[in-house]
């Protein structure tokens, strides 16, 4: 198999990009730590968050799943909420460049699709670099997320009050950091803020997962804001 992180000219991915990918994977591992700890203190066996980490490989849905079960919700409700949150992978799959490959490799490529890998792939300019960044980040997360969860499960069985460590602030911080660069564009920023405000407004009334999808209702605003920007 051709090395994933070499371009046809034999040039490797440059240092800064490799470092960014490594740091994101490390951060995902640290968030995995909080996930494993939360799961174990909620009454799950240590292997459950680890296995779910490998098989589902989508942080927010796993947090939600564990949270709903821990709050006494039914497994069906946890399943539906998880699927709802992961529904964003469909638009992701439409937006992600052609990096997945075919056949069995394509299936693994699809499994590696997540918030981080999509952002890294979109941010590169050449197709080969998009592919290398996507796969390197994806495989790194496939390792770091479950390993982090296992370490967190260990931590959770020792430390009772994981909230005191502030671990719950990690996941939103990672998502925010991933979204910030795109928000430099003014029409996009206004649209995203409106969508987020809408999601927050309906959160008290709707099942978990649905508010995030409802943020898409702000999409027409983007066209309006782009026009306004063009006029000025």
């Amino acid at each position: 198999m051709r090395s994933l992180w070499r371009t046809p000219k034999g040039r490797t991915l440059e240092g800064p990009l490799l470092r960014d990918i490594a740091l994101v994977c490390l951060a995902v591992g640290v968030v995995g730590l909080s996930y494993g700890a939360v799961a174990v203190t909620s009454g799950f066996a240590w292997w459950f968050p680890v296995l779910m980490g490998v098989l589902v490989l989508a942080a927010s849905s796993e947090f939600l799943f564990v949270g709903i079960i821990a709050a006494g919700g039914s497994p069906i409700a946890a399943l539906l909420a998880g699927l709802l949150v992961n529904a964003r992978h469909l638009p992701f799959g439409l937006a992600v460049p052609d990096v997945l490959g075919r056949g069995r490799r394509g299936a693994l490529g699809a499994h590696l699709m997540n918030d981080e890998t999509v952002v890294f792939a979109l941010a590169q300019d050449e197709p080969e670099r998009k592919r290398a960044a996507y796969w390197l980040c994806g495989l790194g997360i496939l390792v770091c997320w479950p390993v982090g969860a296992a370490l967190g499960a260990l931590l959770g069985s020792v430390v009772r009050d994981t909230g005191a460590l502030g671990l719950d602030a990690m996941f939103p911080a990672v998502i925010l950091a991933l979204t910030l660069p795109a928000l430099k564009d003014r029409p996009l920023r206004r649209t995203a803020l409106s969508g987020a405000a809408l999601a927050l407004t309906v959160t008290p009334f709707l099942p978990a997962g649905l508010p995030v999808l409802l943020a898409l209702a702000a999409l027409p605003l983007f066209a309006a804001e782009t026009k306004k920007e063009a006029r000025q």
């Binding site: 638009p91 998502i175 979204t179 928000l183 996009l188 969508g195 987020a196 898409l216 999409l219």
Partner: peptide, 8 residues
């Protein structure tokens, strides 16, 4: 995709 991430 950005909208979904910001709302999340």
């Amino acid at each position: 995709a950005v909208l979904l991430l910001a709302a999340l």
